[in-house]
Design a protein around this nucleic acid. Sequence first.
DNA 1: CTCGTAGTTTGACATCCCTCGTACTACGAG
DNA 2: CTCGTAGTACGAGGGATGTCAAACTACGAG
Lengths: 130, 130
Amino acid sequence: MTAQKAQKEQEAQKQTSPSGRFLEHPDRADIRLEGVLHALSDPMRLQIVRDLAAVEGELNCSVFDLPVSKSTTTHHFRVLRENGVVQQIYRGTAKMNALRRDDLEALFPGLLGSVLTAASLQASRLSAAP
Amino acid sequence: MTAQKAQKEQEAQKQTSPSGRFLEHPDRADIRLEGVLHALSDPMRLQIVRDLAAVEGELNCSVFDLPVSKSTTTHHFRVLRENGVVQQIYRGTAKMNALRRDDLEALFPGLLGSVLTAASLQASRLSAAP
DNA sequence: CTCGTAGTTTGACATCCCTCGTACTACGAG
DNA sequence: CTCGTAGTACGAGGGATGTCAAACTACGAG
């Protein structure tokens, strides 16, 4: 499922779901470059974004094998969402995550790609040097 | 003067200058993507980088008209230098600053460009909507 | 030598950020 | 209905960050 479909699904949930499990997302126009850069400047969050980019779809929180507690994981996903980097939506007990590729590309063309490339290069560089 | 020339000049100073006014810079291999993103995620520092990029050369600290005190300005330049974004060198009483374009381009191709483009786009976007 | 200019250092302060544990809620399976 | 799973909320602690003012250092001009 694409991020756009997920967004529409969330819109639908806002009107039909009785339980109020909604997640606030910034509008595209409210996403700030400084916020995005800050969100990406944490190693844990950068790893999350790389994983999300790798699968081209959406992932639930628990597939990420992060070396931190559950609360900390929640915190990092919240930062990514509040800064407009990811789209989150509840599906049953799971919370699915997807990159907001289109929004980011429209606002900051090429930025996500070069950050992902840079992260890959750095990862190779660091693992190659013992 | 280019950043490379400035670096050589600093190497020379390390051996000849009696006063010990040197500034530590990370080697290219020690520059980390997370650090660069963090350095760029502050509005003040992003503005500095944009100004440096605009002139294609080097600028001393005082040409930046930042709405903060002198100590805070020193602090921001230090963060940029310690994270490998700028090259600094003393020339008389002035401290000249230049982007480390080549190092950044080698490590993270396209990153600096897309960040600068994104910053320009955002600036237009924000100033256009009153 | 003396002075002004440019920038640093130090210390302080408020705030934010990453992390955690514990208690809690929402949902699906049975 | 009951239970297990997935994730949230709520502090709280410890460290980093952005900001400032005041005292200081280094250099060039005169």
